[in-house]
């Protein structure tokens, strides 16, 4: 029996519902000799911005139990070099390349979207809204429903590519932000970005990270991320990509059941670059064991099961 694990999200065909998460897979060329790209349904690039950014001073990472704090500080080569040096590599890849980008003002997001729209090899954009609105209040776009709406609308206006809006978990109510992104025109939501955190060296009394605070990723954040996917799936009907601490097959299945149509893997590839292959194999075996024909049969199933259970109890 064959099982279908490919999914279509707003015109993006993923032969495998597993995507390399932004920032952990570089621009795609660094890992290629190690892994090839056959492991992924799509890859998402390191965040790109209008101007190159040098990023935060080191140390930029600190390992925590089952987690990783990072403060890379959005270091990137800028859109100009990205188009010149990296995009040609993508021509020969036969998997979709999605570009993660950000700006420091609404206008910059729009401008970036326009620049990326014209590049043939790019199949979608992922809008990173976890960065500050430097032109105005300095507030993180993704912390505020209104800013989230405005950024999404600005991007949508300037591109015909599918627009994925990547949500930050560092908010009081992610449902409001998700609705705002959807109303702004998002085709897909991806969540979550890293959870903010810090670590202190008790000998020196100084923060462990050069950037002082950072973002936590890895298995430590999985329950947080899963709950947010669960919540968002209750309030929007556009596809969701689940991200956060997925390390092994069962982790991915949980995200599908909570309502994700695809997942991203970030930190897990550091400890095992072959993890996407293992997760894919697990998903196939799991579906076979459950006598299911397609991944679609488990997407959001927990919402359904819970409803059925409640009905049984109330009867």
């Amino acid at each position: 029996m064959t099982v279908e694990i490919s999914v279509d999200l707003a015109n993006i065909h993923l032969s495998v519902p597993i995507i390399a998460a932004s920032g952990t897979y570089g621009y795609g060329d660094e890992y290629q000799p190690l892994l090839g790209h056959q492991a992924w349904g799509a890859i998402i690039t390191k965040a790109v911005s209008l101007k190159p950014l040098i990023g935060n001073p080191p140390p930029r990472i600190w390992e925590t139990p089952c987690g990783l704090l990072n403060s890379i500080g959005l270091q990137n080569i800028g859109i100009e070099r990205f188009i010149k040096e990296k995009c040609p590599i993508y021509k020969s890849l036969n998997i979709p390349v999605i570009v993660n980008f950000f700006g420091f003002s609404i206008e910059e997001y729009g401008e970036m979207a326009k620049l990326l729209d014209s590049i043939e090899v790019i199949k979608a954009v992922e809008v990173n809204i976890s960065c500050p609105n430097k032109k105005e209040t300095g507030m993180i776009f993704g912390h505020d429903p209104k800013l989230t709406f405005q950024v999404t609308a600005a991007v949508k206006e300037n591109t015909n590519l599918p627009v994925i809006v990547k949500l930050t978990p560092n908010v009081t109510d992610i449902k409001n932000i998700a609705i705002a992104a959807k109303d702004g025109g998002a085709d897909i939501l991806s969540l979550v970005n890293t959870v903010s955190g810090m670590a202190i060296d008790i000998e020196s009394g100084l923060p462990r990270l050069g950037g002082i605070t950072g973002g936590l990723s890895g298995p430590a954040i999985k329950p947080i991320a899963l709950k947010m996917v669960w919540d968002v799936a209750e309030v929007v009907d556009i596809p969701i990509i689940g991200i956060g601490g997925i390390k092994e097959g069962p982790d991915a299945i949980e995200f599908f059941m909570a309502g994700a149509s695809a997942v991203q893997i970030g930190t897990a590839i550091f400890s095992d670059p072959t993890s996407p292959l293992k997760i894919k194999d697990y998903i196939v075996e799991f579906l076979k064991r459950k006598k299911m024909k397609s991944i679609n049969e488990i997407i959001g199933i927990t919402h359904q099961k819970l409803k059925e259970k409640m009905e049984r109890i109330n009867r």
Binding site: Y27, I54, P58
Partner: peptide, 25 residues
């Protein structure tokens, strides 16, 4: 030596300050 995550140049975790101002790291 530096704290490393990927080891292959992808994650930009392991940077060290460079003399060349252009690259900074």
């Amino acid at each position: 030596e530096s704290y490393m995550a990927c080891g292959v140049g992808a994650c930009l975790s392991c940077v060290v300050p460079a003399k060349n101002e252009q690259q900074k790291y």
